[in-house]
């Protein structure tokens, strides 16, 4: 147990110091700048590949993935509007009940 306890104390000290050093590194503009640029480059290439595939697909007259997503999103919005209406109707009914009781 003594051996483990000593090792754990040493490990905790190492972990704490290393975490602080890594935080300094990750905060550095020398790391942040290129890291952000790399992520942006990867994302831009993915977007352009996806865009090219979509153009090819829509040239065949088929709905693209983005078209389908838009349609599904519109359906979800319609569902919300219907629930809004139900809610309004419920409030009106409640008011009518109140006034008829009063």
């Amino acid at each position: 147990m003594m051996g483990w306890d000593s090792w754990k104390k040493g490990f905790d000290a190492w972990e704490n110091t290393t975490a602080k050093h890594l935080e300094t590194v990750l905060r550095s503009p020398l790391v942040l700048g290129p890291g952000g640029a790399l992520l942006t480059a990867v994302m831009r290439s993915k977007a352009s590949v996806d865009g090219a595939l979509d153009s090819w697909w829509s040239a065949l007259g088929l709905p693209t993935r983005r078209d389908q997503e838009r349609a599904l999103h519109a359906l979800n919005q319609m569902q919300s509007r219907l629930i809004d209406l139900e809610e309004t109707l419920g409030e009106i009914r409640a008011q009518q009940q109140k006034s008829s009781q009063g």
């Binding site: 942040l32 290129p34 890291g35 952000g36 992520l39 942006t40 994302m43 993915k46 977007a47 996806d50």
Partner: peptide, 13 residues
Amino acid sequence: SSRFDLGAMIDAT
């Protein structure tokens, strides 16, 4: 970070 293009990420993912 100014080098991180948020729009590019959302367009891609």
